[in-house]
Design a protein around this nucleic acid. Structure first.
Lengths: 191, 191
DNA sequence: CGGGCCTTTGACTGGTTTCAACTTCTGTGG
DNA sequence: CCACAGAAGTTGAAACCAGTCAAAGGCCCG
């Protein structure tokens, strides 16, 4: 197993190598192909996923059947539908691999057992959630503050390499507008 | 001090009355008047606030000087700018009392001390964050899924009493449209 | 080399904003 | 308790941002 997770945990709490070894049974390493669904709408979100290498996205289908991407998870980010995972009720989302992705997964029961055995991990997961929630608050601010065009400009300047990495229709799906409009924005920039 | 917080903590972790009594020095009870700012843009978000009675809102000023409300906190919700609070860097937000509000506040250093002394509180704050983040994910879904008009209809059906409680311009500010448009939607509903 | 998916282009549409003027409500001081 | 000023809410006209639809072009991958 990659030690990407160990290094990530060590960024937030002190953790000995032997301790981490003892935690291993709680985690599962898996690799999924591009477009593979880890979660589908109507199913219970059984796992939390830590991205070792690759990229995941959280999306849903609107009433017209169009995919709307809520968030991406790149290397060293956790991804789950927190509502479904924490209540173990059916989800309204899909979690899908954007590209071939290597993951570390933990299911709800294993997490509870892990936390019982290693209570210091409560702090780690709290810190992870804190960062995720801070990002969500920032995201909401952007959505209210900037026009669609400005959101596109900001996103491309902040994450130029990521924009190269994903297809345009996914970027449009994340920024909340149509591929046609994205196309227009791109051509506008050139002139 | 009100025991609303004790009851809230008890919903997530076992906590003895004496234990809670020992935690008291970490918390401060305050009452603020309507429109009082607990945090202003450019200042560091020093505290987290638990609403005992009343209502807070988190907002920012866009480039035109218009207030955009990101979230409300009613009774039994925690409110803070997590980015500023956790990094202790200047905030881009305001936190303001919507009405006269009774709060329990804790600052960053006190929280760290509290968590060192009562590590089980890590779990409590993790659960609080988990609910807040699940709500944020749901909120993002709504923003992408529904038109402004549909968001208004849904909000009024889900929270009719809250809509009565706050002025309309705050509701417009939260739903991300103009007071004029809200006015039009209201008249449309009547006919 | 072919087929399907992705991207581009352009015309038309409509939901929402903007602006300005008017009305109603609210609370504060005389 | 009334008067008045400022704040909040309403109305209507004009403008615009972004969506929709349809059709053509480009490109990746089998």
């Amino acid at each position: 197993m990659s030690d990407a997770l160990l290094q990530h945990i060590a960024r937030f709490i002190p953790v000995a190598k032997e301790e981490y070894a003892a935690m291993q049974p709680s985690f599962t390493t898996i690799t999924v192909a591009k477009k593979h669904n880890l979660l589908a709408e109507g199913r219970i979100c059984t796992h939390k996923y830590f991205v070792v290498k690759g990229c995941l996205r959280l999306f849903f289908l609107n009433e017209k059947g169009v995919e709307q991407t809520i968030q991406f998870a790149l290397e060293n980010w956790w991804m789950t539908d927190y509502a479904s995972f924490s209540t173990q009720k059916p989800s309204g989302f899909f979690i899908q691999a954007v590209e071939k992705t290597e993951l570390i997964a933990i299911d709800f029961a294993s997490q509870e057992k892990l936390l019982a055995q290693f209570p210091q991990m409560e702090r780690y997961f709290r810190m992870v959630l804190q960062r995720a929630h801070a990002a969500a608050q920032f995201r909401l601010k952007i959505l209210y503050e900037l026009s669609k065009e400005e959101q596109y400009r900001q996103f491309t300047t902040l994450f130029p390499e990521f924009v190269q990495r994903i297809p345009q229709y996914l970027l449009a799906s994340y920024l909340g507008f149509t591929p046609e409009y994205l196309s227009e924005l791109r051509s506008r920039k050139l002139s």
